[in-house]
Simulated scan of single mutants.
Amino acid sequence: MSKAYDRVRWDFLQAVLSKYGFPDNLIRLIMNCVTTVSYENKVRVLDGVKVSYSSWVKLFLLHARGYKVLHHIDGTPAQAKTDAKLDEWQEIDAHVLQWIYGTLSDDLLERVLEDASTAQAAWDRVKNIFTNNKGARAAALENEFSTLKLESMPSLEAYCQRHKVLATQLKDVDAAVTESRLVLELVHGVAQIL
């Protein structure tokens, strides 16, 4: 079944937006959104287990830079309330905020979602979840890293991947695992089965 949306000429849409006086950066953002695949398919859903915070940040920053909206989450001050471009800034900020919310697991979304938030404020709340309380988080991750058993995993590949994810998460809380220790943990787990 074909829909009218499937037959839109993107150059026509861009010309109409320009003709009606939409700002260039908003037109660019809209065109990026409608001419590319879903944003959520590019930045994986952050759950802290399958997708680590550091991986999510790297992907999110890459796409924010590509869409030229990095200034909404990098600490750049928001537009002044008296600025003529405030409405435009708020509209783009709402899109970035939707992207942040759309790439969080349900559990994280419940912890981060707030009324009348900016993208920067939501970005900071996500960051705080993963970077505050580093000592306790490092201890819990270290315990899982050290006690993970191959027989508790569905496959050897899953076992190795989980160790790698835990090593990345430990690095995020300033408790980096050396490569030699990672290899020793993996070998030790395999040796227990043999």
Results as ranks from 00 to 15, higher is better:
73 I>Y: 00
164 K>Y: 06
69 V>Y: 00
77 P>K: 08
143 N>S: 11
190 V>K: 10
22 F>E: 10
192 Q>N: 11
33 C>I: 06
24 D>P: 11
5 Y>C: 09
113 L>A: 09
64 A>V: 00
155 S>W: 04
51 V>R: 07
63 H>V: 08
101 Y>T: 03
177 V>K: 12
48 G>P: 01
42 K>S: 02
110 E>C: 05
4 A>F: 10
112 V>C: 01
30 I>L: 12
163 H>K: 09
86 L>H: 07
26 L>E: 07
172 D>T: 15
183 V>L: 14
115 D>P: 13
57 V>K: 09
128 N>V: 00
191 A>S: 09
120 Q>C: 05
43 V>Q: 02
91 E>D: 11
92 I>S: 12
100 I>D: 12
68 K>D: 03
55 S>M: 14
75 G>C: 04
2 S>H: 12
98 Q>W: 11
65 R>P: 03
58 K>W: 01
21 G>A: 13
47 D>P: 03
115 D>Q: 12
61 L>H: 05
35 T>I: 03
142 E>Q: 09
59 L>R: 04
170 L>A: 07
193 I>V: 13
87 D>K: 11
59 L>E: 02
42 K>I: 08
123 W>Q: 07
76 T>K: 00
179 E>F: 11
20 Y>N: 13
88 E>F: 09
155 S>I: 14
182 L>E: 06
114 E>T: 02
140 A>R: 08
140 A>L: 11
23 P>Q: 09
28 R>F: 03
175 A>L: 07
100 I>M: 13
122 A>W: 02
118 T>W: 00
